[in-house]
Simulated scan of single mutants.
Amino acid sequence: MDRSLIMLSGSSQAALIDRDIAHIARVMRPSLHGDLAGPILSAAYWRNRLYELLDAGNLSHAQLCAVDSLLLQLDQFQAEPQLAWDALAPASAALFPPPYPASTHQSA
């Protein structure tokens, strides 16, 4: 999908970039963590999206800082080892204990 920006007035383009940055900030981390099948979208995808914003040019100082912060978050995410799902919560860490002790339960 070609995400190149069309020629817009300065304020319209700035608003579009602000919305794109806000969207990426909102969905990047959840999509990287994904689900049992792994990441929904890769770090390379998000890095490419952020570089496209930088290539669009004419970003304000606040927008540049926001994009830089998101790139640093990507770097940090890629530097951290990802835990296997089995290591996240052992069965003994259940939220609720059984309703009765195992020793008092009698089978009929």
Score class of each variant (00 low, 15 high):
Trp46Pro: 06
Ala43Gly: 08
Pro99Gln: 02
Leu74Val: 08
Ala37Leu: 13
Asp18Ala: 05
Ala102Gln: 08
Asn48Trp: 14
Ser4Phe: 01
Leu50Ile: 01
Met28Thr: 05
Gly38Val: 10
Pro97Phe: 07
His23Asp: 12
Leu64Arg: 14
Gln76Asp: 08
Asn58Tyr: 00
Ser60Tyr: 09
Leu88Trp: 13
Phe96Ile: 02
Leu54Thr: 07
His23Ser: 15
Ala15Asp: 10
Pro81Thr: 01
Met1Ala: 08
His61Tyr: 12
Ala102Trp: 00
Pro98Asp: 06
Pro30Gln: 06
Ala87Cys: 12
Ala22His: 07
His23Asn: 10
Leu36Arg: 09
Ala37Phe: 08
Pro30Lys: 11
Ser4Tyr: 05
Ser69Glu: 11
Asp20Thr: 15
Trp85Gly: 01
Ser42Ile: 00
Ala66Pro: 00
Ala62Leu: 06
Asp68Gln: 12
Arg49Gly: 04
Ala62Lys: 08
Leu5Phe: 09
Leu8Lys: 15
Gly10Leu: 11
Gln78Glu: 02
Ile17Glu: 04
Arg29Gln: 07
Leu88Gly: 06
Leu50Val: 00
Leu70Met: 01
Ala84Met: 10
Ala37Pro: 13
Ile24Gln: 01
Ala93Leu: 13
Pro98Leu: 13
Asp20Pro: 01
Leu32Ile: 03
Ile40His: 08
Ala108Trp: 06
Leu54Gly: 11
Ser11Tyr: 07
Ser60Glu: 10
Ala102Gly: 05
Ala25Pro: 04
Ile17Asp: 06
Leu36Ile: 15
Gly10Phe: 06
Ser107Tyr: 09
Met7Val: 14
Asn58Glu: 15
Ala62Gly: 01
Tyr51Val: 13
Ala22Ile: 02
Ala102Lys: 11
Asp20Gln: 12
Pro101Thr: 08
His105Arg: 11
Leu36Cys: 07
Gly57Arg: 12
Gln78Thr: 07
Thr104Phe: 05
Ser12Asp: 12
Ile21Cys: 13
Ala44Gly: 01
Leu41Met: 09
Cys65Ser: 10
Leu59Gly: 02
Ser4Thr: 11
Pro98Ser: 04
Asp20His: 05
Arg47Gln: 14
Leu70Val: 03
Gly57Lys: 01
Asp35Phe: 06
Ala25Glu: 13
Ile40Ala: 15
Cys65Ile: 04
Leu54Ser: 05
Tyr45Arg: 06
Leu72Ala: 07
His105Ala: 09
Arg29Met: 15
Gln63Pro: 15
Met7Phe: 06
Thr104Val: 12
Arg49Phe: 06
Pro98Gln: 11
Ala14His: 02
Asp2Tyr: 03
Ala22Ser: 08
Gly57His: 03
Leu50Ser: 01
Ala14Leu: 02
Pro39Val: 14
Asp2Gly: 09
Ala37Val: 15
Ala87Glu: 12
Tyr100Lys: 14
Ala87His: 11
Leu71Ile: 11
